[in-house]
Amino acid sequence: MKWKVIDTVACPNTGIVFSAISSFKMLKLIIWYDSNIILPPGATIEPYSSGMKINGLFKPVTLYYVTPFRKHFWKELKQKVHCPENRDTESPWCPSPVQCALKTCPYGKKMKASLH
């Protein structure tokens, strides 16, 4: 079954990514998965046992949990998950002062090496 990604939120504290998806029959779900891949809004996905096709290209994805889409829950999730990238769009570097748990930055930023 094909799904369309409605929206995605990535948590820099846990490294878990949440995507709201909709089937072509308008069934809506929220999937929780690892951050090797960030599903962009508008992407078409097809789930398989070892990953998923994203816009026709197969990628391994670890799916942790699936829940029914609830508008209130999604709104709360988006309000609680904060990424410091929202403050700095020009630099190629992530402005976060702490190590991000995401394996892939949804904004394409690079983490600065910590100076210890």
Results as ranks from 00 to 15, higher is better:
Met1Ala: 10
Met1Asp: 13
Lys2Tyr: 13
Lys4His: 04
Lys4Pro: 01
Thr8Gly: 11
Thr8Asn: 09
Ala10His: 00
Ala10Val: 01
Cys11Met: 03
Cys11Asn: 15
Pro12Phe: 04
Pro12Leu: 12
Ile16Trp: 07
Ile16Cys: 06
Val17Ile: 12
Phe18Gln: 02
Ser19Trp: 00
Ser19Gln: 02
Ser19Val: 01
Ala20Glu: 00
Ala20Cys: 05
Ala20Lys: 00
Ser22Gln: 10
Ser22Tyr: 01
Ser22Gly: 07
Ser23Leu: 08
Ser23Asp: 09
Phe24Arg: 01
Phe24Glu: 02
Phe24Trp: 03
Lys25Asn: 14
Lys25Gln: 14
Met26Pro: 02
Met26Thr: 04
Leu27Cys: 04
Leu27Gln: 11
Lys28Ser: 04
Lys28Trp: 01
Lys28Val: 01
Ile30Ala: 05
Ile31Tyr: 01
Trp32Glu: 09
Trp32Met: 09
Asp34Ile: 11
Asp34Gln: 08
Asp34Arg: 08
Ser35Leu: 10
Ser35Phe: 06
Ile37Ser: 01
Ile37Thr: 04
Ile38Glu: 00
Ile38Lys: 00
Leu39Gly: 01
Pro40Asp: 15
Pro41Ser: 14
Pro41Cys: 13
Gly42Pro: 08
Thr44Ala: 14
Thr44Gln: 08
Ile45Phe: 05
Glu46Arg: 09
Pro47Ala: 08
Pro47Phe: 15
Tyr48Lys: 10
Tyr48Ile: 09
Ser49Cys: 06
Ser50Cys: 11
Ser50Asp: 13
Ser50Phe: 07
Ile54Lys: 09
Asn55Glu: 12
Gly56Ile: 04
Gly56Leu: 05
Gly56Lys: 08
Leu57Arg: 15
Leu57Asp: 12
Lys59His: 13
Lys59Gln: 11
Thr62Gly: 13
Leu63Val: 09
Leu63Cys: 04
Tyr64Val: 03
Tyr64Ser: 05
Tyr64Lys: 11
Tyr64Ala: 05
Tyr65Leu: 09
Tyr65Gln: 06
Thr67Asn: 10
Thr67Pro: 01
Thr67Asp: 14
Pro68Val: 03
Phe69Ile: 04
Phe69Pro: 00
Arg70Glu: 07
Lys71Phe: 05
Trp74Ser: 07
Trp74Gln: 07
Trp74His: 12
Gln79His: 15
Gln79Leu: 13
Lys80Val: 11
Pro84His: 08
Pro84Lys: 11
Thr89Asp: 14
Thr89Gly: 05
Ser91Ile: 05
Pro95Ile: 15
Pro95Leu: 11
Pro97Arg: 07
Val98Met: 12
Gln99Ser: 15
Gln99Lys: 15
Ala101Asn: 08
Ala101Val: 04
Ala101Asp: 08
Lys103Arg: 14
Lys103Asp: 07
Thr104Cys: 06
Thr104Glu: 06
Cys105Val: 10
Pro106Ile: 14
Tyr107Ala: 11
Lys109Asn: 06
Lys109Gly: 02
Lys109Tyr: 06
Lys110Ser: 14
Lys112Glu: 14
Lys112Phe: 04
Leu115Trp: 05
Leu115Met: 07
His116Lys: 13
